[in-house]
Design a protein around this nucleic acid. Structure first.
Lengths: 351, 351
DNA sequence: GGTTCCCGCTAATCCGTATTAGTAAGGGGA
DNA sequence: TCCCCTTACTAATACGGATTAGCGGGAACC
């Protein structure tokens, strides 16, 4: 008795059927456009339409989707908050692209976040199954959960290159390798012979790609590059000065969603009264989203985040549609950013 | 036969039942917490739980919604893109608050947008019924659709004050009236006697409130205020100069999501080489989200967007829970922003 | 006059989960 | 031994709509 007391609810097809003196399926056929081509007299059709009109019928999207077994929802899973407090956050341009393309394809977006959830909470990850497919945005891949999704044939796409699951994980990435190599080459052309590369301690494909590009250009150009891993705390003014004393003329910093590396270098420089590119050149392997008012434009490369978001949605909807030969991995190119923080070395290199 | 070939779908309770050797309702009881208190042996319960775990079961929100009418989903409907291309967009801080509070209350967020949809497509709005309740963010209220939601008892909350549907529409707004009056009073105290108020042509409660506050302060202080409605194109340097020639010493601009009014004034000033507050004072009835690097901090007031987002979620979850005496309308206070664009009038007023 | 065909519609069923009524099995008491 | 009461489930059904098989009746054809 309990649940049925909720009587004054919206009119259903059954109500229309009763009023028009037909059956519910007939109503469904009339209102649903009758794609199956079932024969229906115009008179019946009209009675149904009139009844629907007079009752103010609105189809229930939930019921409709239950029988369609698809809900026109794309999941978007971010391992940190989707709307970070810091507006400058580098996720934002991805979201712009994702939303644009999702809207264009008629999908709505379902936001999930594991921020605040227990580590490795598999229920949280499993919740994404309620979408028809899901995009993932994050530096790392929870291999067990993702492996299971793949095994089950659940459509998913990572934003960012990831090889944690071999060739199985679909992604849309950016070509950090070439772009990073280009940054080093530009420095070499300006005369820099000794670099420090500051990166996060943490390992991820995004880091590996940048370092690979850097190393290949280092090998090509014959410059020297010292790799420094930091968690931010251990790069201070003293350390910065000691590098410069050692002959380092340019610092290359990894870009990540937290920007730990470049932030540490910038603070150390500011604290020590050092300026770029007068005292040393500073290049970022990436870009800074929504550059902050006070800070100079960093030299580096632009990541096509918006286009990556769009491409990821296209790949995902392709997977959902079960396209036979869907391209599962895609790498988009970056383009160089001149910026204001790179110049010739303070002292011309000896030769 | 056709529709059932689509086999590799998500596991259902029926699959679990088969694996555990029980019936589907038993699975539902075990997984649903068995609130009815049906007797179940621990052994059976465990078998079901194990089976569910091993299949990676996730309840289908649509089916659940159809029968239980709740699925832990909050809708967020924006009448423009949710992630605007312009990162500075004023919606963003609302979203931060909404996401925070939704996460805190254990709800996932379902993003809907009518951007790109035909005008007045009511089906588009009906999609939101998939969620347990929905937040709406926009300058206007599609009265017919919202009236229908209210009639049906569908829980919804507007972010922003709206009286289009009388007392029926729940909202969380900001006190633009007092805040706008304060801005005018501060100008009056500085000696300004003649203002121009630049606002959008478009009418909305957010505009009406600001204008009401302005008018009340104008009446109190005896200053003169000319109201100018613009769509942006018709405010140029010549017009600006003619105002100043008429004795206007301060311009007050409405803030909206597009910021048409203030942008027009600023461009006109820049083009004419006019500076604030030296040539005239410029106050905004609101604030500028993520102030742009080049532009000075505008004088105005801060809208507690993040807290509004949180409050709206709290109100909505209250409505969903069917709280008997839920407060349906809430107004949060704004606080003044000194900024750099308001000062004493260029020439002391005659007396 | 019987068979075939077509028209116009409905019965039956499905989607996945929740809920309630009811039943089979086992134990205890008289 | 019969009855009743638990215990532990399952059958039946609802939710609202989509889909498909099938049925009754009349017209056309042989």
């Amino acid at each position: 008795m309990t649940r049925h007391e909720r009587r004054p609810s919206r009119p259903t097809q059954a109500d229309i059927a009763r009023l028009a003196g037909v059956s519910q399926p007939t109503v469904s056929l009339v209102l649903g456009g009758n794609k199956a081509g079932v024969a229906l007299s115009d008179e019946t059709r009209q009675r149904v339409l009139d009844a629907a009109e007079s009752l103010g019928y609105v189809p229930d999207p939930i019921a409709r989707r239950l029988s369609r077994r698809t809900n026109n929802l794309l999941g978007l899973y971010t391992f940190t908050a989707t709307f970070p407090t810091d507006v400058q956050h580098s996720y934002y341009p991805f979201l712009v692209g994702v939303e644009e393309e999702a809207a264009a394809q008629g999908y709505d977006l379902l936001l999930f976040t594991s921020s605040g959830a227990y580590e490795g909470a598999t229920d949280v990850l499993n919740r994404v199954r309620l979408a028809d497919g899901c995009l993932f945005l994050g530096r790392h891949v929870p291999e067990k959960a993702m492996g299971r999704f793949l095994d089950d044939g659940y459509p998913l796409v990572y934003i960012g290159r990831h090889d944690e699951l071999g060739e199985r994980l679909p992604y849309v990435g950016a070509d950090y390798v070439s772009a990073s190599a280009d940054v080093v080459r530009r420095l070499a052309e300006l005369g820099h012979r000794h670099l420090a590369y500051v990166r996060e301690k943490d390992d991820a494909p995004a880091s590996a790609d940048r370092e690979a590009g850097l190393r290949s250009a280092v090998a090509d150009t014959g410059v020297r590059a010292d790799v420094v891993r930091t968690d931010g705390g251990d790069v201070d003014t003293a350390r910065l000065r000691s590098w410069l004393a050692d002959g380092v003329t340019a610092i290359v910093a990894e870009e990540t969603d937290t920007d730990i590396a470049v932030t540490a270098v910038e603070s150390a420089a500011r604290a020590g009264g050092l300026r770029c590119p007068d005292d040393f050149s500073l290049a970022l392997l990436g870009d800074r989203v929504g550059r902050s008012p006070g800070l100079p434009a960093l030299s580096g490369f632009a990541i096509p985040r918006r286009e990556m978001g769009r491409a990821a949605v296209r790949m995902l909807t392709g997977l959902i549609a079960g396209e036979p030969e869907a391209r599962i991995r895609q790498i988009l190119g970056c383009h160089p950013l001149a910026g204001e923080t790179v110049g010739a070395p303070p002292r011309p290199p000896e030769h």
